[in-house]
């Protein structure tokens, strides 16, 4: 699976009936060590209710058809998880809801 940041949505009213009722999100692929976008974009089908700004990972190819939202549909990129934390070498490079220490 590949990591991406949800940077927007893609709306299409004139589309295949097979993909009716699905939300399409615009993902910028990220480099997890720096969390920077790489300027490579993917339109992914939303399988988990992800929102703009969130870090997600998506499954590609025919595996994209195996979520409830995309079963039997022509989905080749489906978001299957919203990331809470990414840790590299024991250090977090991303924390979704960082706990803010009270000012003492």
């Amino acid at each position: 699976m590949l990591l991406g940041r949800v940077v927007g949505t893609v709306v299409s009213t004139h589309k295949s009936a097979k993909i009716e009722g699905l939300k399409f999100l615009l993902l910028d692929m990220i480099q997890p060590a720096t969390m920077e976008g790489q300027g490579k974009y993917v339109v992914a089908m939303d399988g988990v209710g992800a929102g703009t700004g969130e870090i997600v990972f998506y499954t590609s190819g025919s595996c994209g058809r195996y979520t409830e939202a995309t079963l039997g549909r022509p989905a080749d990129a489906t978001i299957i998880a919203i990331v809470d934390t990414i840790e590299i070498g024991g250090k977090p490079t991303y924390v979704k809801n960082p706990v803010i220490e009270d000012a003492k």
Partner: peptide, 20 residues
């Protein structure tokens, strides 16, 4: 090189452990 933790998922894999 690391781990990826996520609670909101749609993969239905029991006890999944995702590695980076």
């Amino acid at each position: 090189v690391g781990t990826v933790v996520c609670t909101q998922r749609a993969d239905n894999v029991e006890g999944a452990r995702f590695m980076l």
